[in-house]
Nucleic acid binder design. Structure first.
Length: 110
DNA sequence: AGCTTGACCGACC
DNA sequence: TGGTCGGCCAAGC
């Protein structure tokens, strides 16, 4: 018998860590980004790889283009669509290198 | 109780 | 500018 058995509406089906990650992604302001490592540090749980694993499986539910690696990049299959969002949001983005300018766009949670 | 799998990261060459 | 390496740790089996 678990909490989920007793209170199904309190559980989206996602593990607690995944839910925490997605909640943080949801508060990143338009035009800014956080890195995988930033999010793990903000949560004081897990690490960059765990955050990446959550984004890989559940990222489509949130503004996934606002989460990039420590080099300001996303996996190649997502770069095209991400750049459209960066245009709309005015995110500092180096088009030739296909990466966000972290110095200008990185957001720390404030 | 292991073992494997990652949208990772930093140090190093 | 690339490549390798070790460390990282939640989740699923």
């Amino acid at each position: 018998m678990t909490t989920r058995d007793l209170v199904p509406e309190a559980d989206t089906g996602l593990p607690p860590f995944a839910r925490r990650v997605l909640r943080v992604v949801g508060i990143i302001p338009a035009g800014r980004v956080m890195t995988y490592g930033d999010i793990a540090e903000y949560l004081e749980e897990g690490g960059p790889r765990q955050v990446g694993a959550v984004m890989s499986r559940h990222g489509d539910a949130v503004p996934w283009w606002r989460v990039v690696n420590a080099g300001g990049e996303l996996p190649s299959h997502l770069r095209g669509e991400a750049s459209l969002h960066y245009d709309q949001e005015g995110t500092p983005y180096d088009k030739s290198r296909e990466r966000v300018n972290l110095r200008l766009a990185r957001w720390g949670g404030r």
